[in-house]
Design a binder for these strands. Sequence first.
DNA 1: GGAATAGTGTCTATTAGACACTATTGT
DNA 2: ACAATAGTGTCTAATAGACACTATTCC
Lengths: 388, 388
Amino acid sequence: MIRPAVALIGSFRQHYPHVLAAAQVFLDNGIAVKSPPMSWITNPGREFVRFASDPPRSSDHAIQAGTLEKIFASDFVYVVNPGGYIGRTTAYELGRVRERGLAVFYAEPPEDLPIDVPEGTVVSALDLAIAIGRGTGVRPRPIRRPRVAALPTADIVIFTIRLGRLHVLLVKRGTDPFRGKLALPGGFVRPGESLEDTAMRELKEETGLDSSGIRLRQLHTYSHPQRDPRGRIVTTAFLAIAPNLPEVTGATDAYRADWVEVEESLWQNGGRLAFDHGVILQEGLERARQLLEHTTVGLDFCGKHFTISELREVYEAVWGVKVNPQNFQRKVRNTTGFVVKTKEKRTSRPGAPAELFRRGTAHILYPPMMRPGQQQRTRRENQPTNMV
Amino acid sequence: MIRPAVALIGSFRQHYPHVLAAAQVFLDNGIAVKSPPMSWITNPGREFVRFASDPPRSSDHAIQAGTLEKIFASDFVYVVNPGGYIGRTTAYELGRVRERGLAVFYAEPPEDLPIDVPEGTVVSALDLAIAIGRGTGVRPRPIRRPRVAALPTADIVIFTIRLGRLHVLLVKRGTDPFRGKLALPGGFVRPGESLEDTAMRELKEETGLDSSGIRLRQLHTYSHPQRDPRGRIVTTAFLAIAPNLPEVTGATDAYRADWVEVEESLWQNGGRLAFDHGVILQEGLERARQLLEHTTVGLDFCGKHFTISELREVYEAVWGVKVNPQNFQRKVRNTTGFVVKTKEKRTSRPGAPAELFRRGTAHILYPPMMRPGQQQRTRRENQPTNMV
DNA sequence: GGAATAGTGTCTATTAGACACTATTGT
DNA sequence: ACAATAGTGTCTAATAGACACTATTCC
């Protein structure tokens, strides 16, 4: 649980003392104040207020952009509007904030601005601070519980195997934050889309190919309040598995997309992934490993026709261990519905010509493929255990 | 290619003739004008302008909401601001529009509003119309791709076993939508909370007891755009498992919380659950069944001390099948770290006194507990299969 | 005493893992 | 010729499922 944060907006030029007083109330009640800075005004009387903490040489709209960033990084917005007055800059900020979906509360009912003011959103700073504070204090007036709006995004962990090694698709970020760092492909949910729609669209855009045959599986949703410096962004990670795609080009976006070896991207390079994508990749990898045990997704790495050795190499690449070829062969062939023999054979490397298979109808492997080296094993004898 | 559409904003009160003139220019060049209506003003001189085509009885902000809808339905926005003047309502609309990512063009450079005006966006209506009509020049490109803000919520599927049957905690909704229907407990994410924080807080509130020992697992995130009639609400479902709790009272909220038998809530009663909670419950149940196979969560249903028969009844209740008592006994006792024998015995029902156990250190069962009736089984012989 | 339960022993079918072996190819 | 690969056979240890059996309790 992170300390909640508020941004105060309003006509600083006219009402700065009121703003300071309200900010103090929030601070006294354990709520962080992201904006305005607790500073002093250097150009009193001017239309656009500047604070001593603002960089003196930057333009008005650069300062305003910084203010909006701080506002978006907070959990809710409090409008300080004595007499109901809301100026033009505040009106503009209010539009941005409301379109973004942040919760907005008002000190007084807004005058002369035709906006919807829901029941319970006109409230004093103290009442609001008390209602938010974790103390179950008395709520003197009915106020709507502050809800947090978030921008949902979908990020994709897509694996493939190249030269016998597991690779993941990463993009180099072209914009801040984390400009130049590697990140998982993904993007924001657009109007009318579900997370699955977004993931599929992004996958198409990033790989630049027909990904209609690629199945997406939801992995996990990451919602830590500070996981993205831009504000409240909640991402849902998806897992996808692709057969060996020859080349990939980021089709629509300026940044480049490339296959990177998984081990390398996780441990090497000093180059940590952007945001929490390192964790997401790690957890996606573990999920892929589990899926190989229990389902037939290993086939998704292969083309339409494949040999059992190729399938084994998939398991070895994903699991990161060697698998006994003979026993693997028998397990695969003896599991109903896993693979179906074709009449063709392939003879590429030294050795007997290998039979070609195509996928069977099964999707679940029960009993599962046993992953080596996981043995917790049952005990041989019923010895008296005394684990604490 | 659909006919492009523009929305004009600006101070209609002061500049309506300019607005009409600009609109005519767009119309003459084959561009649709979504807003304002080509109508006349019924309340000249008043702060908030009303048109003859507006419903006369509706409130200012209802009309404004309709206007915003039309603006958002257009492809770009043209700000009619003679002398650079932008009023407060226009500033608010501008904020909404820019946050939405729509392209914005200005008749003149905006004065006294600290916003970013990109190169080439100050342009006459005629130039703009021609550029768009010809398709050659300035293409209205979104400043930023439209994003959707959503309210994240956490819903909880919490199971327990009462009288040998699996129960789930459901609440009766006290407000619309779905007033009076049963739903999963849950709620909106509050400032500073992660989804996990929200789920834990709601669980405490709903069960009204110390749930510090209860572990939450994320299940799935449901994001269909129309899954909640109130708007864009994205819910993440969590799974929790509780030992037999004697009674539950919804502590903070007006609605009642009660344990309901799972089979009943899913199939019977004609009473479908609210929202998509029926699906969530179904998928949560399947996940719980899988977890019992692969982990020691079955112990979470039991108290601190338990007999092996009690644990078996947990498996039977969740899986919905009978389990062979002898083999279950052996499997549990022979799996290292699953359970630890205590020195006590319990003698409640007819039969020999049962030994009491407590939980071991293991969390993962490998190899797993085999769930009966899942057999896809491997083949006895390597028969030629011909599955399609 | 009869029924129900707890716990152990035993048998069978199946499987994972290990290894031997043959057949077939590229170099 | 040699090394590498494909595929089959066989042995061992472990396990799931089935059932028999004893001991202990409640009614």
